[in-house]
């Protein structure tokens, strides 16, 4: 097995300061928000790598950097050995861009309402002057819709059908990797299962690789081969699926698993987690999780733990073993 995507030391800092004049008048300092902090991981070909984490943990930002929608502040993403941010050979960059596509959470917002489904699906190919004859029709059938749908407009479709259209569009350029950012969060459960099954089928048929972004642990458990857990922009734990769910090593992962509601846990009394995610502009020193961590010691308040391997797991916690 070889890695098709390599993410190394990826960092993205957003300047969220007030406008310059306000800063001068109010004497407020520059505010920098570290959305993604020194994240490294690899995705193997034809596997599903999931990123989980709560709101603001940096999942979407990593996805957007991977497809080139947001530039990194530091670090790099290599796809098939090509670094999008520094590669100067246009042909290589174009090839990689076509190799990696993205599906977004909101199937309503991501389709242009005035275009036919055919135009929407064909666009990634037609802007490059490629041949689109019969393309949309074929892809629609591949995602479980019908070729006659190509002439319709997005409003004629339900949420689940729209997400299928988004998937068809992502497939148009013949990608090898798809970044899926919460692809089923806006869908009802009965429709979510249709989309998840479709994604699994396409992975097998086309040999696709997925970066699967989600905050839903049961969906991640269902889909992923390997999982990275993010907290405040940093990877706190990474492990193959069963390893992570059977033996979570980071106190945050453990807290997340305990807190997640379970359909088979009738009347369960949880001891709910303490506190909330801190402000990303002023993250706590040391381990970012220490203010909420039940086992934190002095060292945690001072020194930021690095990711270190323990068996098949990588974990960023001083006390994990």
């Amino acid at each position: 097995m070889s890695a098709i995507v390599k993410v190394e030391d990826l960092t993205r800092i957003f300047d969220v300061s007030k406008p310059w004049l306000n800063r001068v008048i109010e004497r407020s300092p520059r505010a920098l928000l570290t959305a993604v902090s020194e994240v490294s991981f690899e995705i193997e070909e034809n596997s599903v790598y999931a990123l989980v984490g709560e709101s603001g943990s940096g999942k979407s930002t990593i996805g957007k950097i991977m497809v080139g929608l947001v530039p990194p502040s530091r670090g790099r993403v290599e796809v098939d050995g090509v670094d999008l941010a520094t590669e100067t050979d246009r042909a290589k960059v174009d090839a990689v861009r076509a190799d990696i596509q993205m599906i977004f959470q909101d199937p309503y917002a991501s389709l242009n309402p005035r275009w036919t489904v055919r135009d929407i699906i064909n666009e990634p190919v037609s802007i490059k002057g490629g041949d689109t004859k019969g393309l949309a029709e074929r892809l629609l059938e591949q995602v479980g819709l019908s070729a006659v749908d190509a002439g319709k407009y997005p409003h004629e479709f339900s949420g689940g059908q729209r997400q299928r259209i988004c998937i068809a569009r992502a497939l148009a350029a013949g990608p090898r990797i798809i970044v899926c950012d919460e692809p089923t969060s806006a869908l009802d459960v009965s429709v979510q299962s249709q989309v998840l099954n479709l994604m699994s089928d396409l992975r097998e048929e086309l040999g696709l690789t997925y970066l699967f972004i989600s905050h839903d642990l049961t969906v991640v458990h269902h889909m992923a081969d390997k999982i990275g857990v993010l907290y405040l922009g940093g990877l706190v734990e990474e492990a193959p699926r069963d390893r992570l769910f059977d033996a979570p090593k980071h106190p945050y992962t453990q807290m997340l698993f305990d807190a997640a509601p379970r359909m088979d846990a009738f009347g369960r009394e949880v001891d709910p987690p303490k506190g909330e995610i801190p402000d990303a502009i002023n993250p706590p020193p040391g381990c970012p999780f220490h203010p909420r961590c039940p086992i934190a010691v002095d060292r945690c308040r001072e020194e930021r733990p690095r990711l270190r391997p323990i068996g098949e797991t990588r974990v960023a916690c001083h006390l994990a073993e």
Partner: peptide, 24 residues
Amino acid sequence: AGLMASTPVASQGHRRLRQIPGAM
């Protein structure tokens, strides 16, 4: 029954999810 079978449950691993065809 369809709703329950289409909901992923962690304890059931990679089992194929049941689909309810169509939409409400």
